[in-house]
Structures are given as structure tokens and as C-alpha cells.
Amino acid sequence: MFARTILSRQLLRPAFAAPAAARTSFLTSIQTRFLSDQTRQAIDKAVSSAPVVLFMKGTPETPQCGFSRASIQVLGMQGVDPAKFAAFNVLEDNELRQGIKEYSDWPTIPQLYIDKEFVGGCDIIVSMHQSGELAKLLEEKKVLAVEAEAAEEEAKKE
């Protein structure tokens, strides 16, 4: 599928009409160096699927790696609104697992995005949590479940 797309593009664009040997190496370098448009678009869609997006190993309920678990715990402690959060399990999709590393120019999982902007991996999430930066950012982006909490507080008072 991917190879075919490249070939048809080559046919359409005379600039790529190179000798067979060169074409082979061109294909190889494309495949190893660049994300396919299809994968990039799929990741674009994933990144914009919610204000807070975590690419992780496993699921929020059952993380499959300590770093993903620590990251999910931090987001939980911060009180991120579940309605404004999406998690993607990279173990379910090898294309995503490899693609996200190139997409973010980041070599490890988990990866956190807030408002389509790359925030960092586990080390950064934890250190921003400890320094208070994360709380500030999440509040600014209005992704905390504050309204629900405030409503509960109100209910208690009455």
C-alpha cells in the first residue's frame, strides 16, 4: 500500500524518474526516514481528539509500563477532566508506536500532548507535577474537572 503510493507518485512526477538502482535506494530512505502521510494524518487526528492526549503503553486502567503508569497517576492527581482526556495505547498499533516517536521527535513512550502541543515524556510530566508548572498549565488550558468539584463543594455546603 505504502510502496504503491510512492510508485504512483513517481510516475506522476518526472523528477523522480531515476535509474532503477537509485529508485530502490530512494524507496528505502523514504521508508526509514519519513512517516507515511496516512500515519501522520492518523496521528494528527489522535493529537486533536481531546485537549489532553497521552500516548502510552497499555490503558489508563491497566498501564503496561511503569512510566506510563506514573504519567497516568499524575494526570489523575492533577484532576484532569476525563471528558477532556484521551489515551492511545501504542501497544495495540505498531504503526502508531513507531510513528509517534518520529512525529514528536521523541524517542520514548509515554508522550503527553496538551492542546495539540507536545509537553514531554514521563520525566517532564513528573518534574512539572512536582514544581507546580503542570497544575498551572492544566488550569490555564481549562482542562481540570474543577466545575464538578466546585459543584460538589456547593452541594456539601447546602
Binding site: 498501564p63 506510563s68 504519567s71 501497544l91 520525566d123
Partner: peptide, 14 residues
């Protein structure tokens, strides 16, 4: 070095 995400200094997971 940071040990967050590890279990007693060792990585767990897949």
C-alpha cells in the same frame, strides 16, 4: 537520577 515510574529502581512492564 530519577526513579519515578520504576519499582524500587527497576523498570517494570513490557
Amino acid at each position: 537520577p530519577p526513579l519515578d515510574g520504576t519499582a524500587g529502581g527497576e523498570v517494570t512492564g513490557v
